[in-house]
Amino acid sequence: MKVYVSGMTCMHCKKTVERLFSQIDGVEKVEVDLATKIANIKSTKNISKEALEKSLEDTAYKVEKVEY
């Protein structure tokens, strides 16, 4: 699944988004490409856009689009 995330500008942003997404139940692996602003998520189940947004709710990052 690909998640387009706005607001990321540096390696700290990348690591923060990876950490927050990896804490969602069912997520096995998260890799963020800072250049494209895409988080590639490998999971054991479908993760809702709402769950992704909730994990970022107290940050400057925003889920723009999710491709399953």
Rank of each mutant, 00 (worst) to 15 (best):
V32R: 01
D58V: 06
K54M: 07
M11N: 15
K15H: 14
E57G: 03
Q23R: 14
L56Q: 04
V5D: 09
V32I: 05
K62M: 11
V5F: 06
Y61K: 03
S48N: 09
C10A: 09
E18Q: 13
M11L: 13
V3N: 08
C13Q: 08
V30A: 03
E64T: 10
G7D: 06
K14A: 04
Y4T: 11
A35Y: 12
E53S: 13
T36V: 01
G7T: 04
K54A: 12
E18M: 09
L34W: 03
A35C: 11
S6Y: 02
E57Y: 01
C10W: 02
A51V: 00
T16E: 14
K2F: 10
Y61G: 03
A60T: 13
A35M: 14
L52K: 04
F21K: 04
S6G: 08
S43Q: 04
C13S: 12
M8Q: 06
E28R: 13
E28P: 08
L56D: 10
I24S: 10
K62G: 05
L52W: 02
C10F: 02
V27E: 09
E57I: 03
A60F: 03
K65M: 10
T36Y: 04
A60E: 12
K65D: 13
E53H: 01
T59G: 06
I41T: 00
E53K: 12
M1S: 13
V17S: 09
I41V: 10
G26D: 03
L52N: 05
V3H: 03
K15N: 15
K37M: 10
C13W: 01
S6L: 06
K42D: 14
I47G: 02
L20D: 03
A39L: 01
E50K: 08
D25R: 09
E67R: 00
L34H: 06
S43E: 08
E57W: 00
K37Y: 06
K29C: 10
V32K: 00
Y68G: 08
D58N: 15
D25F: 05
R19Y: 13
Y68F: 11
C13Y: 04
N40K: 11
D58E: 14
E18T: 08
L34Q: 07
C10V: 02
K49E: 15
A35G: 12
V32C: 00
V32E: 07
S43N: 02
V66M: 07
T59H: 02
D33G: 03
A35T: 14
Y68T: 10
S6E: 14
L20G: 03
F21Q: 05
L34S: 05
E31Y: 08
L52R: 02
N46M: 10
K54L: 06
M8D: 09
F21S: 07
S55L: 00
K62H: 11
K62Y: 07
V5P: 01
T44K: 14
K49Q: 14
A51M: 02
T9H: 15
T44I: 11
G26W: 00
L20M: 06
V30L: 04
